[in-house]
Amino acid sequence: MLLRPLLLLFIGTLTFGYAWAESSPDKLSQEPVRPLKALVVNAEKVALGDMLFHETRLSVDNSISCAHCHVLAEGGADGLPVSVGVNGVKGGMNSPTVFNAALNIAQFWDGRAKTLEDQIDGPLHATAEMASNWPDVIKKLTADQVYNSAFQKLYNGEISEQTIKHAIAEFERSLITVDSRFDQYLRGDESAINDEEKKGYALFKEFGCVACHQGENVGGNLFQTLGIMDDYFATYKEIKKHDYGRFNVTGDIMDKHKFKVPSLRLVTLTAPYFHDAKITKLEDAVRTMGKYQLGMIISDADIASIIAFLETLPGKHPRLEKEQ
């Protein structure tokens, strides 16, 4: 049933993307980074999803909602190395941002969730997170007249795993940070970014960061080994299961230590960095990347330029506020 609209969406996006790419000035249509466009969503379902995203009854003790770890106002992540679930239990990995997550190739660091809907199962059931289950959640929501009437209107009265997931995912699809300064620049507004930022972008390309951090989401569309030029995990005291990344999903030996390349769109807002959240400063993150992925040492000045460029990436969204 979802096949058709998604098929259309895909073809439409492709076509549009291509047409748009072909139609814009030559220079910018060849850029590896593409501008963000909002996804088509149902506003009422988005509103319901918003409610559910902030619904603490999704957790077993009614204390944790999605927004707990994906704080919208703070860039869609919690700014913690690891998130804290119910009863103060600490999670295992660094929570990524929820903004623009809809544009990723898959969800979770190891890509085990193919869709936003599938992703919801993870935190809902995880003991370290919400530690709940669907029957309980459905029961709690059904008891609430507000949800009853909302679901009655939008989902024909069905309050189920599918409909709850769909509403939340619909909300998440609405969280696209469009019209960043860099996107304006890509669209032809030369004055949208300054020279420093342009320089940063040029370095970003020259150094090869863009090989992986490309596309509309500046990343998020492939899996890549963490530690190409050098062994990232050499200094680890203990390599945990989750450190094997994509290998845990595919079982292919080539996929060891491969992780989904994160989107850099809101990178300036979502410290700490990497799956183990070991890096708290963006400069260090850039430096680490240069070392392990590119095999180069990047100077501080270049890092600053790159960071200046990265600052142009966060787009606009009503729910996104960040005090600079």
Partner: peptide, 14 residues
């Protein structure tokens, strides 16, 4: 110069 089409294709194939 970017993998978006392959990303979408990958998703669709799944």
């Amino acid at each position: 110069v970017h993998f978006d089409s392959l990303k979408y294709a990958h998703r669709e194939m799944l």
